[in-house]
Amino acid sequence: MNIDSIKRGIVLDHIKAGRSMDIYKSLHLDELECSVAIIKNVKSNAMGRKDIIKIDDDITIDLDVLGYIDPGITVNIIEDGVIVEKKHLALPQRLVNVIRCKNPRCITSVEPELDQIFRLTDEIRQIYRCVYCDSEKKKK
């Protein structure tokens, strides 16, 4: 299967197989006017199978969202048909308006204009806590 290579844009590589649609939605790629290719179940030496997303424009990507969903993703920035930068992600220390607090006793449940802010409190267990109420959110 051939997908045209892009001249200027972004390639999200090493996406866990099956997660590309989540990322497509979370990054609001459906709202873009440029071409976006989702390539699923690509053979990978390291991962067995992986997904790839190619975006045919130089857009700004929220790396915190991406790092939270899948810190193993590589972000390749393409200019003039060649990779000019490879960004490796990590779990972000702080998440703003990426996930929501589900604690009904939390102030964010009654004050909708507040930013939903979480901080990474346990990197090994991948646990985030709401900065307001300390409720735990374990990364799936």
Binding site: N103, R105, C106, I107, T108, S109, V110, E111, L114, C130, V131, Y132, C133, D134
Partner: peptide, 25 residues
């Protein structure tokens, strides 16, 4: 009564905030 309310208040406050109790938190 809501957890984290003083924290939320402190973000925009121009004076020091003391948490005198926020729900069960």
């Amino acid at each position: 009564p809501k957890e984290g309310a003083p924290m939320a208040g402190s973000f925009k406050s121009t004076v020091p905030i003391i948490n005198a109790g926020d729900g069960g938190h």
